[in-house]
């Protein structure tokens, strides 16, 4: 497999914005098994996510992520708002955002598409399917796609 040049040696930073501990656990399981050096950090709500991304307060040392995995149904600030703020922020809008959500509502798909989400995935019910999906995200966005420099 061809490895993304600037990521091959480095640690890959992933920000998972998700409030469901079950899903966090499942995503972590998949990334733990990955052969990539990765650092998966989790924001439990929209506000925390934005603080991390903007390196505010306690997160002043937080690394800027290479990939954001974003749930839509979030406390405090929902996923749509988070997505809008990311895409309106010059320094953040280049980071690919993968929407990973339970919702298969067309409204959500349309809305996130308008806001330039990089892809939209509905969380599969089946465990195997779910693992496959998270692995595909990892494979496509971290190994195949050439990512912009941090």
């Amino acid at each position: 497999m061809h490895l993304n040049g600037n990521l091959a040696a480095k640690m890959v930073e992933i920000l998972l914005i998700e409030d469901n501990p079950g899903d966090i656990r499942l995503v972590k399981e998949v990334f733990k098994d990955s052969k990539l050096h990765n650092n998966l950090r989790v924001a439990l709500d929209g506000e925390e996510a934005m603080k991390m991304l903007r390196q505010e307060g306690e997160y002043f040392k937080a690394q800027r992520p290479d990939l954001i995995i974003l749930d839509l149904n979030l406390p405090k600030k929902n996923g749509i708002e988070v997505l809008r703020e990311i895409k309106e922020d010059k320094s953040l809008k280049c980071i690919p955002v993968v929407i990973l959500t339970t919702s298969n509502a067309e409204e959500d798909l349309e809305e996130t598409c308008k806001l330039d989400a990089n892809c939209y995935i509905t969380k599969p019910v089946d465990l195997d399917e779910f693992i496959k999906v998270v692995k595909s995200i990892q494979n496509f966005w971290l190994e195949i796609v050439k990512l912009p420099p941090r």
Binding site: N20, G22, L72, T102, A105, V125, L127, D128
Partner: peptide, 25 residues
């Protein structure tokens, strides 16, 4: 209701299914 059903009702179900399967595995 339709929106909530598509979203909030499914999440707990997914949890049940996924973790039962994880348990089994």
């Amino acid at each position: 209701f339709a929106y909530v059903a598509s979203h909030d009702l499914q999440e707990p179900l997914r949890m049940i299914i996924s973790f039962l399967q994880l348990l089994q595995r």
